[in-house]
């Protein structure tokens, strides 16, 4: 029994709308693409859509509250919300270096969460005491 799915190709700005014919859940024919990259993309998109996740992770031990992060590879699209539920509970301890793994093997996907920025360890904002910057003129 045939089934059809429509996929918008995002490989280039043309954004072709590709109609995919499925037989027993497997893509067998494509129509509407304008180059050969379209069917490759559409096949993956039908069988195993994956996305890069970028987010932030809370930081403890610094005046900076968050560190930006990304996944080390694409993760299955339908796991994105589960991964985020995990990420929202994480707290990275400063200092954090860009490239550092913040959480390994997210939910058994084999993909890590990696910091994309650095956060130095600094005391959390304390009440203003003696300013360490010279305020007088030079």
């Amino acid at each position: 029994m045939d089934e059809f799915r429509t996929v918008t190709c995002t490989v280039c700005p043309m954004g072709c709308s590709i109609r995919v014919r499925l037989e027993d859940g497997l893509p067998v024919a494509f129509e509407g693409h304008q180059c050969k990259r379209g069917p490759v993309y559409a096949r993956d998109e039908v069988l195993d859509p994956r996305r890069m996740l970028t987010t932030t992770v809370r930081v403890c031990g610094s005046a900076t509250r968050l560190v930006p992060a990304r996944t080390s590879a694409v993760v299955p699209r339908d796991r994105l919300m589960d991964v985020m539920a995990l990420v929202r509970g994480l707290c990275a301890v400063a200092p954090v270096e860009a490239g550092q793994v913040l959480c390994a093997d997210l939910l058994g996907t084999g993909v890590d969460l990696v910091a994309t920025g650095s956060v130095p360890a600094s005391p959390p904002a304390t009440p203003v005491s003696a300013p360490d910057r010279k305020e007088d003129s030079r």
Binding site: T54, P68, R70, A98, T116, G117, S118
Partner: peptide, 25 residues
């Protein structure tokens, strides 16, 4: 850029898909 934490930067210039903070760094 520091607030643009998503990817999509640097593909043209560095040939790799960077996030905003990485591009700024």
């Amino acid at each position: 850029l520091p607030q643009c934490i998503h990817a999509g930067f640097g593909l043209h210039e560095f040939g790799t898909d960077l996030t905003g903070p990485e591009y700024a760094d």
